[in-house]
Simulated scan of single mutants.
Amino acid sequence: MKKRSLGINIAAIVLFAISMYPFFVMLISSVKHQMQIYENPWFFSKVFHFDNYWIAFEQIAMPIVHSIEVTAIGVIVTLLASSTAAYAFARHDFPFKNLFYSIIIMLLMIPGFVILVPQFINIKNMGMYNTIIGQALPPAASYTAMGVLLLRTYFEGLSKSLYEAAEMEGAKDARIFTLIVLPLSKPILATVAIMSGLQIWNNFVWSLVVTTGDKVMPVIIAITTIQSGINEGDGVKLAGYIIASLPLLILFFAATKPFVSGLTQGAVKG
Rank of each mutant, 00 (worst) to 15 (best):
R4Y: 07
I10L: 10
I10K: 05
A11T: 02
V14F: 09
A17E: 00
A17Q: 00
I18C: 05
I18W: 05
P22G: 09
F23M: 12
F23T: 09
F24G: 14
S30V: 02
V31A: 12
Q34T: 02
M35D: 11
M35W: 07
Q36P: 04
Y38P: 08
Y38V: 15
E39R: 15
E39N: 15
N40W: 06
N40P: 07
W42M: 12
W42V: 09
F44A: 08
S45F: 01
V47N: 06
F48I: 15
F48V: 14
H49D: 03
D51G: 14
D51L: 12
D51V: 13
N52G: 10
W54L: 15
F57A: 11
E58I: 13
I60F: 02
A61W: 09
I64P: 01
I64K: 03
V65I: 15
V65M: 15
I68L: 14
I68V: 11
G74C: 09
I76H: 04
V77L: 11
T78E: 10
L79C: 04
L79H: 01
S83W: 01
A85H: 04
Y87L: 13
Y87M: 14
A88N: 12
A88C: 14
A90Y: 04
R91I: 02
H92T: 10
H92L: 12
D93K: 07
D93M: 05
M106V: 03
L107S: 12
L108N: 09
M109T: 03
V117I: 07
V117E: 00
Q119M: 05
I121V: 07
N122H: 07
I123N: 00
I123Q: 01
K124N: 10
K124G: 05
M128L: 11
Y129K: 08
N130T: 15
T131V: 13
I132Y: 04
L137G: 14
P138E: 13
P138N: 14
P139A: 09
A141R: 04
Y143W: 12
T144Y: 05
L150Q: 03
L151Q: 03
Y154T: 01
Y154M: 04
F155N: 01
G157W: 00
S159Y: 00
S161R: 09
E164D: 02
E169V: 06
A171R: 00
A171P: 00
D173K: 05
D173N: 11
A174Q: 06
I176V: 06
T178Y: 08
L179D: 11
L179I: 05
I180Y: 01
P187Q: 07
A190V: 15
T191W: 01
I194D: 02
L198Q: 13
L198N: 12
I200D: 03
I200N: 03
W201K: 06
N202Y: 03
N203E: 14
V205P: 03
S207I: 09
V210Q: 14
V210Y: 08
T211S: 06
G213R: 10
K215L: 15
V216N: 02
P218V: 05
I223C: 03
T224Y: 06
T224F: 04
G229F: 11
L238A: 07
A239E: 01
Y241H: 08
I242T: 00
I243L: 08
A244S: 06
S245D: 04
P247A: 12
L248E: 03
F252E: 13
T256L: 14
K257W: 09
F259H: 09
V260A: 15
V260T: 14
S261E: 12
L263H: 08
T264N: 11
T264E: 10
